[in-house]
């Protein structure tokens, strides 16, 4: 489903160039639940955003459903993203002036909301414990409710893959468990999940766990002295199971 080939992403800054991705190769198959772990600043969010077609790599290819995402025109990439990829962010990123229900509907590809059976939105809100909050705006929700709304927004279009960037980073343990339970259910129903996190709460759900340090991926956790700065080149890149 997702194939990363030698992805590199460099950012310029006052202190010089930083390699957020230093040649990442990775394959994710349909139905996997992949957890990418690593310390802050190691490049895992950059990898996730690059996989989601939101951050053009400096070098390398990204194939999604056998199409090179960054070789297609921006409009087509938008369509692929809106139809096949669901995102969940650490900071929720809900539209502040829309209700819970409208925020969830905003996750549908542009123009698709009119074709959606309304029961599906209601069912999803009920499943996620948001039924009583349908007409509330994000400003009046708790952090857990906000993240569940973001999760519903990602799930509403039944995407091929959900990319979650630290989805529980701002949640208490109860809500964090709630979020992972739903991601797990989505995975069990055949969905593909990629979660970036530096916590341990995804351990029970992952079909594969990868570790990231200094812009590189490894199947094994890095040794304790691993630096998070660029230029670390001893960690081999890996390809996921086939």
């Amino acid at each position: 489903m997702l194939l990363c080939e030698q992805l590199e992403r460099r950012f310029g800054g006052p202190a010089g160039e930083v390699a957020a991705l230093a040649g990442v190769s990775l394959r994710i198959d349909r139905g996997e639940f992949v957890v990418i772990k690593g310390p802050s600043g190691c490049g895992k969010s950059t990898l996730l955003l690059t996989m989601g077609g939101m951050q053009r790599p400096s070098r390398g290819n990204l194939l999604f459903l056998d199409q090179n995402l960054y070789e297609m025109p921006a409009a087509r990439r938008n369509r692929v993203r809106s139809k096949h990829i669901g995102f969940v962010f650490q900071l929720f990123h809900l539209i502040p002036y829309l209700t819970v229900r409208e925020n969830i509907l905003a996750g549908l590809p542009p123009g698709d909301s009119s074709r959606l059976p309304l029961e599906r939105v209601d069912d999803l809100m009920s499943e996620l414990g948001l039924g009583h909050r349908a007409l509330h705006k994000p400003g009046s929700l708790s952090a857990g409710e906000r993240q569940r709304t973001a999760l519903a927004r990602a799930l509403i279009k039944k995407p091929d893959v959900i990319l979650a960037d630290e989805p529980t980073g701002n949640l208490d343990p109860v809500n964090a468990a709630y979020v992972f339970r739903f991601l797990g259910e989505y995975h069990r129903s055949g969905g593909t999940v990629v979660v970036v996190t530096h916590g341990q709460d995804a351990a029970g759900y992952a079909s594969r766990t990868l570790h990231m340090a200094s812009g590189r991926l490894s199947a094994d956790p890095p040794p304790p002295e691993t630096s998070t700065t660029s230029g670390h080149d001893s960690t081999p890149t890996i390809a996921a199971k086939g």
Binding site: G52, A74, N78, S82, F87, L91, H93, A106, P109, P110
Partner: peptide, 16 residues
Amino acid sequence: RVEIGLWRALGHSSSR
């Protein structure tokens, strides 16, 4: 800015 980024992440075109 975040909202604009989000709309784009959700697949909305720049023109919209």
